[in-house]
Design a protein around this nucleic acid. Sequence first.
DNA 1: TTAGTATATAATGATTTGCTTATATATTCA
DNA 2: TGAATATATAAGCAAATCATTATATACTAA
Lengths: 114, 114
Amino acid sequence: MIKQRMEMDQAAAVFKLLGDRTRLTMMRILADHDCCVCEFVAMFDASQPAISQHIRKLKDAGLVKESRRGQWVFYSMNRQYEHFEFVQLLMEALPSQEEKFTELEKQGKRISCD
Amino acid sequence: MIKQRMEMDQAAAVFKLLGDRTRLTMMRILADHDCCVCEFVAMFDASQPAISQHIRKLKDAGLVKESRRGQWVFYSMNRQYEHFEFVQLLMEALPSQEEKFTELEKQGKRISCD
DNA sequence: TTAGTATATAATGATTTGCTTATATATTCA
DNA sequence: TGAATATATAAGCAAATCATTATATACTAA
């Protein structure tokens, strides 16, 4: 696969999206696991609308995609995103947020749709 | 050198700083060359105060450092910055802004203090 | 159909951002 | 010293950002 040339405007737009603690952590988590909204709400100390609005920005920009599974809406990294590889490179430079996830399981708040 | 663990808050703060086209391009240029303020002013379609204010943010955060050379103030990447390597990794993922520089020389606006 | 759960959206407001204009400060050079 | 150049800072303002509250929509299950 050929690496897309990244324009500075686009790069700045990505950085801007990632320049928020909540969105950045969400993306880092999504690099490892799909996640539904209520899981994010449980992980972060944030309201459900706040989480929804952060996700919307990521979705509008194309970084994540959604898929409904029953009553839940799951989000995942969008591998079709023009600069997916760039985003992935960034996420790999950041520490795993696995604790957030294990903590969620400990609280019994993990949603599983398998 | 041991790679510093990057906290998400700090990472988000870096991304936020880079989430502006002008600052991001400045940083990309600084990855290759030191630069003085008037060179940035000539390169970007921006006023001198606007440029100064962008630089100040980068300096306050520790990403760049200044050194006066005669009447000019030159800026460079701060290699002592806690997350210098992280920033450098990001810059390497972006296209060189060499054209900006060559254009500057063509206009005879390159400042040289050697 | 109705209640309950999950999610999205709309309206609002405080805060932050990034410019502008005006002015202050620092340095060089005649 | 005084003029010219380079840079920084302050004040003010429009737009963007990010939360909150209230409400709408979508789905499940009884």
